[in-house]
């Protein structure tokens, strides 16, 4: 059974000719953890707002749990949880006041679904009398998640929950999502961090309103067209220039401590040619190794082909 279905959704704003969301179709199975991966301005928020009935699409149709996002908006509002990109809780209310307020407006109580949020809430409970405005980024995020979960939604929409959050809090957050998935909640999450993609079951790569690819993370990686090599030498920025001007280079981008390169013509011999080319350019400590591409490599590749 599919919990979320989008068919040819188009969204434009005002007189702007370029589409914020350009003919997007995908579907999410019940209980699935689905990631919408793309940079800011790719259209992730617009898609989420349409699915949560906050925006109307210009054309196309979409259903959440079988309800139409335009006609049946009241039904959808009863069954979804939504955490917008900006921290959107009341800064002048305490943790507890925020939570019980959101519980009441969803016609429930903190007690009723406490088991769902227990793991998360226990981490912030010691500060429950502190006002939300005085919390750190990670704690705000946990509180927001509790508030979005308090009515035990069937589908949870998390719009960039990890933006601006440090690596440790991000990791913790994804662990929480994995636990929630076990409760059978369908989760749609958007993020600009490509490294988070591998934690989803299915991902859609999105850029400029268009879906570049939809697949499982491993499916996306295995569809990468070329063999990818990681190259390293002592002087990395000069290395990048030299690699980019190498005649057989297909693409070359820096990736942390390595540069990732794919070749137009790929063979053992070509790698040796590359090695000697770099030696001639007086690079030292040259390392070239074949690697499995990351989601980010795949994203860059797709972007280049657009």
């Amino acid at each position: 059974m599919k919990d979320v279905v989008l068919q040819n959704i188009v969204k434009t704003y005002g007189t702007d000719e370029s589409c914020a969301v350009d003919n997007v179709s995908f579907s999410v199975e019940k209980g699935e953890l689905f990631g919408l991966i793309g940079p800011d301005g790719a259209g992730k928020t617009s898609i989420f707002r349409m699915l949560t009935t906050l925006l109307l699409p210009n054309s196309g149709s979409a259903q959440v749990c079988g309800y139409d996002i335009v006609k049946d908006y009241t039904s959808i509002r009863n069954i979804v949880g939504y955490m917008p990109g900006k921290f959107s809780l009341y800064q002048d209310l305490t943790i507890e006041e925020n939570l019980s307020f959101f519980a009441t407006i969803f016609n429930t109580t903190i007690k009723e679904n406490y088991n769902l949020i227990r793991d998360i809430y226990e981490q912030i409970e010691p500060f429950k009398d502190r006002r939300a405005g005085n919390l750190s980024g990670g704690m705000k995020q946990k509180l927001a998640l509790c508030c979005a979960l308090i009515h035990k939604p069937e589908v949870l929409f998390l719009d960039e929950p990890t933006t601006g959050v440090d690596a440790v809090s991000r990791k913790e957050f994804w662990e929480m999502l994995a636990r929630l998935k076990k409760e059978g909640i369908t989760i749609l999450v958007s993020t600009p961090y490509m490294d988070e993609a591998s934690l989803c079951e299915n991902i859609a790569l999105i850029q400029s309103g268009k879906i570049l690819d939809i697949n499982t993370p491993s499916g996306i990686i295995s569809s990468y067209p070329n063999q990818l090599y990681a190259v390293k030498a002592t002087h990395m920025s000069r290395l990048l220039h030299d690699l980019q001007s190498f005649t057989n280079t297909n693409s070359c981008f820096s990736f942390g401590e390595f540069h990732h390169i794919s070749l137009q013509e790929d063979s053992e011999k070509q790698i040796q040619t590359l090695h000697s080319y770099l030696q001639q350019a007086k690079h030292t400590n040259i390392q070239i190794q074949a690697i499995v591409p990351s989601i980010e490599d795949c994203f860059i590749e797709r972007m280049r082909n657009e």
Partner: peptide, 13 residues
């Protein structure tokens, strides 16, 4: 401005 209106709208209230 806060974004809380979004949450209120996406609720049965």
């Amino acid at each position: 401005e806060l974004g809380t209106m979004e949450i209120l709208l996406v609720s049965p209230s």
